[in-house]
Amino acid sequence: MDAGFWILQFLNATQFSMLLFLLSIGLTVIFGLLHFVNLAHGALYMLGAYIGISAAAWTGSFWAALVLAPIAVTLIGAVLYFTLIDRLRSAGPMNQVLVTFGLIFVFIDLVRIGWGDVALGLNAPQVLSGATDLGIVSYPTYRLFLIGLGAMVMAILWIVLSKTQIGAMIRASVENEAMAKALGINVGELFFAVFCVGCALAGLAGVAAAPVLSATTGMGISILIPTLIVVVIGGLGSLEGAIVGSFIVGFIETFSAAILPGLAAILTYVLLAAVLVLRPRGLLPARA
């Protein structure tokens, strides 16, 4: 295990963390703002991948797919919002979990009907194919792009949330919805907008992951577990929590798979249990 090995693991972990971040940020904000448990978030990720693959085939452009898939997934999310989510907001977490868990299978079957049950790949664009020489190691260029994409989304969200008035409105509404309303903030509209951004990021994660992981009908469920763990560890509704949680889970899963394969499957759960016992609200919850 030389330096190159560690650097590779570090890059793999960072890339996985970014993917987890793109998914968990949507999920955690929807949790935090709407008090809604949307397990279908993983299915939106899967849809992003499949739609992206088709969009790339139709347009012949990966970049077009990278834009179109999130838009399509947002539209699907908006339909879900008005047909189900808005109505289920006061139905309690158990009903939300049951309905949105059911939705996962509806979407999986729709994908089977539309695309078939085979793993589909997506080619990275020419400029991002191949590997980049980083001195000690050489690393797939596309994966570096994924790291950059995640970092860019993180930076944009951070600036919007912490520096703009919209961000202040979101933070205020997450912290105290009733008082935000009493100050004239249209919390309903704001939450819908944030929900849409969350869906768009799930779609973006899906299409962006497709060249690396290829699209399968199981991808939405398999990513859902670590994403939920990120949300719980990080603390509901908080950007910082999603960032920190993503890196913790991404690094633990990647490094344990590389050096302690026997423990890999349980380490994150041990961490989850520890956080739940010591800090049940997560490491950086939105509501102090």
Partner: peptide
């Protein structure tokens, strides 16, 4: 309870 937004 005043309800100042603590995160702002």
């Amino acid at each position: 309870t005043r309800d100042i937004f603590g995160s702002l």
